[in-house]
Simulated scan of single mutants.
Amino acid sequence: MRTGLLCVLLCWIAPALAANSSLSLADLAASPRWQALMHVNPGATLRDRGRSYIDDDNYFLAKNGKDDVLAELRATLAALEPAKAPERCRYPARYRFLAGHLDWQEDAPFAHCEEYSRWRSAVHASRAVLVFPAAYLNSPSSMFGHTLLRLDQGKDSAVWLSWAVNFGAVSTEADNSFFYIYRGLAGGYPGRFALVPYVQKIQEYSHMENRDMWEYTLDLDQQEIDWLIEHLWELKDINFDYYFFDENCSFRLLELVEVARPGSQLLTELRFAEVPVNTVRALDDRGLISERHYRPSKAVELDNLRRQMTAQQQRLARAL
């Protein structure tokens, strides 16, 4: 039944593809954005070269989708083309990709997707900011620092209203630091993206852990930010492999930026380690950083105020 439906859909799509001789299913599967949506490893790491980084069968519609992006494209065509198809609610970015290339014109393609529509109305942004909290030696996963993405509602909106996009290992509280490092090095943890209010991250990094934070506004337009947000929904509860040195929080954020702006060449160079400093440098080298902002920790702010006081005032403060 599924094979017959796929044949019918491909016959229906063939005229649209034939209208543009340079366009074919193979061309679409090889396009930078489809490769980015599939998270295909272009050779940046030695593991899974030429395959998808995603280590979760729930993400793929084809049985061999992790290894064959063309097969995954064919399965996606069959699943998303019918009006009110339930799979559309899972893959809004994939639908947008196919609709743009195959001229699917619908006024409300997600009208039947109540959960996604509620989520999308709550998660909206007009600016993306890469945030780099400084190193924190008390946490093995942050000994080189950390990176996350902040989604702002507007340029002048309060950051308290922003969302934070974070990637991390799914560990348990029972794991001690040495066990965490061992499993992190060996790929023993799954990694997942999480979307949380940014105010939680400010409280965690700046107030509780006294970590300075550097913020880098990314030069992404509204359409590119929409691509990123829609793809985040597709990655909800989807597992990746997590490796402490290379396939970590910084590396995964570069994958998201590639979805927003495919062809940025952020993942083409082979790397044996991906640290936050290199991530910032890679984005800057590609012209993707437009602004920079430094947010000192509360400890740094208090120390700066102390240095402005006279010796007598400092003695009085200590006495109080």
Rank of each mutant, 00 (worst) to 15 (best):
T3E: 15
L5F: 07
C7W: 04
L10E: 13
W12R: 14
I13P: 00
I13F: 08
L17F: 00
A19L: 14
L23F: 06
L28A: 07
S31W: 04
P32N: 07
R33T: 11
A36W: 13
V40D: 01
R47G: 13
R49N: 07
I54Q: 07
D57T: 15
N58G: 10
F60T: 06
A62R: 07
K66V: 05
D67G: 11
L70P: 04
A71T: 04
R74G: 00
A75H: 04
T76I: 02
A83S: 09
K84V: 08
A85E: 10
P86M: 04
E87W: 03
Y91F: 14
Y91S: 03
P92C: 10
P92Y: 14
A93P: 02
Y95V: 11
L98Y: 14
L98H: 08
L102N: 12
L102W: 12
Q105N: 06
E106W: 08
A108P: 01
F110W: 02
A111Q: 09
E114K: 13
E114W: 10
E115C: 01
Y116M: 05
S117R: 12
R118C: 07
R120I: 06
A125T: 04
V129R: 02
A135C: 00
A135V: 01
A135H: 08
N138W: 08
N138G: 15
S139H: 11
R150K: 12
L151H: 00
D156C: 02
W160P: 01
S162P: 05
A164R: 12
N166S: 05
G168E: 15
A169E: 08
S171N: 06
E173H: 14
A174D: 12
A174H: 15
I181N: 00
R183W: 05
R183T: 07
G184A: 06
L185R: 04
A186N: 00
Y189Q: 06
P190E: 07
P190R: 13
S206P: 00
H207Q: 11
M208W: 14
M208V: 12
E209L: 12
E209K: 15
N210E: 13
R211V: 12
D212K: 06
D212V: 04
L218D: 00
L220E: 05
E224C: 03
E224L: 05
I229R: 14
I229G: 14
K236F: 04
D237G: 03
Y243C: 03
N248T: 01
S250M: 02
L256N: 11
V257D: 08
A260N: 08
P262I: 08
G263D: 03
G263T: 04
G263N: 09
G263W: 07
S264L: 14
S264C: 15
L266P: 10
L267A: 12
R271W: 02
V275K: 11
P276E: 05
V280N: 11
V280F: 11
D285Q: 06
D285N: 05
D285E: 13
R286I: 08
L288Q: 05
I289D: 02
S290I: 12
S290H: 01
E291V: 00
E291P: 00
P296D: 05
A299V: 05
V300I: 15
L302V: 13
L305I: 09
R306D: 02
Q312P: 00
R315I: 06
